[in-house]
Design a protein around this nucleic acid. Structure first.
Lengths: 343, 343
DNA sequence: TTGTACGCGTTATCAC
DNA sequence: GTGATAACGCGTACAA
């Protein structure tokens, strides 16, 4: 049982290599009978084409890479699932790839373009700190729920899908203020964060200012850099520190649902109740939020629509040479059991 | 800005192709100066080697593939994280790959072996229904937290890491019985499941029998086949159906924590309380379990130890030609707030 | 409709 | 220490 190659199959079938190739790749100009015969012996002998060799020679690009920042992000996994279906519908293949928090997503993309024959790339999350590199990307790409698009980048070269992070964040904090909260803590991103985290923090500040509430820097709690970003553990640790600081607050706004859940647990572990003692709100709208106790008040991003739109835009760019678009989706404020009117 | 190849770099540097190759691959017999010079121009010109071409030619296999069944499984993502570190320590590269629930993990493995040059494979989850195919795998592989190893497979050809699913399941149900529960429902796997799901169900039955409690088939609730397996939604839907059936029970044992969380929500949504009205127990020991309200009683698998052991065993097989091992880990019954003594 | 021959970008082998 | 060259397995012109 040595490694089978296309050559072996050709010899076995008594045909030429290219005929086998045609059979494999569903080329039109091949006799159905010989094709069936070839496919048969391929099956019997368990021959599997070598993808590396194919990538090397192939001209037509029929796969779309999805680069995801981080793993275990429940928000992304729903998006990926939808994208997978949509991409399949369009007769493309999805190449899924995770990018570690300490890797540069653009480097990974550059590598992947060389390795596979990509038609386009979808970035899910990430920071995009080295924008010069983005220009080296020879294929169309879409930033999906990535930061606010980097301002100094030519916006006709790529598409983006997002919500208005600043405005949605404003909406949430504004609502908390309407509920009577004045001392509102925020669980924000690490201070260097120039993307989503920064925008959501800006929305928070603007909401306070709109109501003449001065910003208390001691209620701005950046998540810890030494733990996994946007994780429950991180939310727990930071909230615990906040509680121990004895700085007063009645509501906590976490810039992601996962952080919010960690925060909830830290609060209940300290003997306090939600929402009676503290109101907690999140951002994202992951399913876990509804399953949690108490169910989580949050800004729900239209995950499925966004995923579908992402693939749709990319597809139009690829097939119709359509222009790049920047689509901003409206998110929905969902009030559940983790927040209440202050007494 | 055409595609740079190793040839271009060689020309640019005024050296031969092989010298560039040596520089890239840290070969010993190269002049440090020329190497530095080459690395420099590579950097400047943004040259990136083509991985497909490398995979095609390379002889030495230095990467380990981790094939994960399903995405968004929090249990696995912790394992992967640990494996990644361990694999890096051993100077190997991790190739992570997700396998859809409707894909065959062995097919994917076979493909990957052809495409990349793999030293070994780690399977995380999966069902392994086509065992003949496994024999075609030309590289060492490890089944990590996969079913009970298929009995009809030669156990010297692969390693496995697991907990004793039957015994641990027995332990949990036994404990519930000790707490006074007699009517214990189980949220189990789809009926065709021949692996983990079956074993955990067997443990449940044995525990009941050990206490002369007859098995009530109407309290055996298989998860739905038309929804994502082992998901919160699935747990929710099935538990809801159970509650509506009006079949009496005082405790619910879910064969995974995610299912258990869905079950909890279904129960609280129906106006009942945990653990006052129903005790709920899970299996796995994912972190979310401690963050949930109420915190979840569960069988905690030693996730990190298992991940480390997986890599360690594979490494020994690869480097020392060690024999394959079948390591069974002890899991821990952790009682938290979702279960209580019956009144 | 089918077969031959070349080249994709890289690494390994062998001379030098 | 370095450079030429033959593979690796496949797709694709082009000829038949």
């Amino acid at each position: 049982m040595e490694e089978m190659t296309i050559k072996d199959i050709a010899k076995l079938c008594g045909v030429g290599i290219s005929t086998v190739s045609r059979a494999i790749n569903n080329h039109p100009d091949i006799n159905p009978e010989t094709k069936a015969m070839i496919m048969n012996t391929i099956e019997e002998n368990g021959y599997i084409p070598n993808n590396s060799a194919r990538n090397l020679k192939r001209t037509e690009a029929k796969s779309i890479a999805v680069l995801v920042k981080g793993m275990s992000n429940l928000f992304f996994s729903t998006m990926i699932k939808v994208m997978e279906e949509e991409i399949k519908k369009k007769k493309y293949t999805l190449v899924l790839h995770h990018v570690d928090f300490n890797e540069d997503e653009i480097d990974v993309a550059l590598q992947l373009v060389k390795e596979k024959r990509l038609a386009g790339i979808i970035f899910l999350g990430g920071y995009f700190q080295h924008q010069e590199k983005l220009e080296k990307l020879q294929v169309p790409y879409i930033l999906s729920t990535v930061s606010g698009p980097p301002e100094n980048l030519n916006r006709t070269e790529y598409s983006s899908i997002s919500v208005d992070d600043e405005a949605e964040s404003f909406k949430m904090v504004n609502r908390l203020i309407e509920l009577g909260h004045k001392k509102i803590a925020i669980l924000s991103a690490v201070s260097e964060d120039e993307s989503i985290g920064k925008l959501r923090l800006m929305g928070y500040k603007r909401a306070l200012q709109a109501h003449q509430i001065s910003v208390n820097e001691r209620l701005i709690m950046p998540m810890r850099a030494d733990m996994e970003q946007y994780s429950m553990q991180n939310g727990y640790a930071v909230t615990q520190a906040l509680l121990e600081s004895n700085e007063e607050f009645t509501a906590l706004f976490a810039i992601s649902d996962m952080l919010a859940i960690g925060a909830c647990k830290a609060i209940t572990d300290s003997g306090k109740r939600i929402p009676e003692d503290y109101s907690v709100a999140g951002f994202d709208g992951i399913q876990l939020g509804q399953y949690y106790n108490p169910s989580l008040t949050t800004i729900k991003q239209p995950i499925e629509e966004m995923a579908k739109a992402t693939v749709k835009i990319l597809y139009k760019v690829l097939s119709d040479h359509a222009e790049h678009k920047h689509q901003v989706f409206a998110a929905e404020l969902i009030e559940r059991d983790s927040t209440q009117k202050i007494k």
